[in-house]
Simulated scan of single mutants.
Amino acid sequence: MNLKKTNAIREIEKTHFDYNIYTYEVDENDLSAINVAIKTGIDITKIYKTLALLNEKKELIIACIPGSDELDLKKLAKVLHFKKVEMLNLNDLLKNTGYIRGGCSPIGIKKRHLSIIDNSALSKDKILISGGMRGLQLEIVPKDLINYLNMLTADIIIK
């Protein structure tokens, strides 16, 4: 795979973080985190997907959760003190984040937004997040990601 520098890669290169790049063959019919786990050989509990949401004021929120889990919208709204949150329409993802579905990274989004990660990340030595394009993952220490993006941590997945 010819590695194209994404916004996420350019931004992480400016930090002092240890990170590794994983590439994998993309299946356009299956962009799931589970497929990423299979293709990279990395445990699904260490692969974090990036979700883009809106609150009732239509402000963008970025949430990262383990790839095999589902976001609990009610928990997320409560933790962030919003009346409600909803998933961003996929048609608006590129315009709001600079990324496409299956390649949305919490790093390198056009401008900083309220970001949150499920607190399960705190128990991991390293996690994988999207590197800003399909077929590209960044392995990073969760605390580095959390500190860099000033992310909140909370239990935000359906149990």
Rank of each mutant, 00 (worst) to 15 (best):
Lys4Tyr: 09
Lys4Met: 11
Lys4Trp: 01
Lys5Ser: 05
Lys5Phe: 04
Thr6Met: 07
Thr6Arg: 09
Ala8Gln: 02
Ile9Pro: 06
Arg10Met: 13
Glu11Ile: 12
Glu11Gln: 10
Glu11Asn: 08
Glu11Ala: 11
Glu13Phe: 02
Lys14Cys: 01
Lys14Val: 00
His16Trp: 03
His16Arg: 11
Asp18Cys: 06
Tyr19Arg: 11
Tyr19Trp: 03
Asn20Gln: 14
Asn20Tyr: 12
Tyr22Ala: 07
Tyr22Gly: 07
Thr23Ile: 11
Thr23Gln: 15
Tyr24Gly: 07
Tyr24Glu: 02
Asp27His: 06
Ala33Ser: 15
Ala33Lys: 07
Ile34Trp: 06
Ile34Gly: 08
Ile34Gln: 12
Val36Met: 12
Val36Ala: 15
Val36Gln: 11
Ala37Trp: 01
Thr40Val: 09
Asp43Met: 03
Asp43Pro: 08
Ile44Ser: 09
Ile44Asp: 06
Thr45Ile: 13
Thr45Gln: 10
Lys46Val: 01
Ile47Cys: 14
Lys49Thr: 09
Thr50Phe: 00
Thr50Glu: 00
Leu51Cys: 06
Leu51Ala: 07
Ala52Val: 15
Lys58Tyr: 08
Lys58Val: 01
Glu59His: 12
Leu60Arg: 08
Ile61Asp: 13
Ile62Gly: 05
Ile62Leu: 12
Pro66Arg: 01
Gly67Glu: 09
Asp69Gln: 15
Glu70Leu: 13
Leu71Ile: 15
Asp72Cys: 14
Leu76Gln: 09
Ala77Ile: 05
Lys78Arg: 11
Val79Pro: 04
Leu80Met: 10
His81Asn: 15
Phe82Met: 14
Lys84His: 10
Lys84Leu: 12
Lys84Ala: 12
Lys84Pro: 00
Met87Asp: 02
Asn91His: 08
Leu93Pro: 09
Leu94His: 03
Leu94Gly: 08
Lys95Gly: 04
Thr97Ser: 03
Tyr99Thr: 04
Gly103Asn: 04
Gly103Asp: 09
Gly103Ser: 10
Cys104Phe: 00
Cys104His: 03
Ser105Trp: 00
Pro106Cys: 02
Ile107Gly: 11
Gly108Asn: 00
Ser115Ala: 15
Ile116Met: 08
Ile117Thr: 13
Ile117Leu: 06
Ala121Gly: 01
Ser123Asp: 15
Ser123Phe: 14
Lys124Val: 00
Lys126Asn: 10
Ser130Leu: 01
Gly131Trp: 05
Gly132Glu: 09
Gly132Trp: 04
Gly132His: 03
Gly132Cys: 05
Met133Val: 13
Met133Lys: 15
Gly135Leu: 11
Gly135Thr: 02
Gly135Val: 08
Leu136Asn: 07
Leu138Glu: 02
Glu139Arg: 05
Ile140Lys: 10
Ile140Pro: 05
Val141Ile: 12
Val141Asn: 14
Pro142Ser: 04
Pro142Thr: 07
Pro142Leu: 07
Asp144Lys: 06
Leu145Met: 13
Asn147Glu: 14
Met151Leu: 11
Leu152Cys: 00
Leu152Asp: 13
Ala154Ile: 02
Ile157Leu: 10
Lys159Ile: 06
Lys159Glu: 14
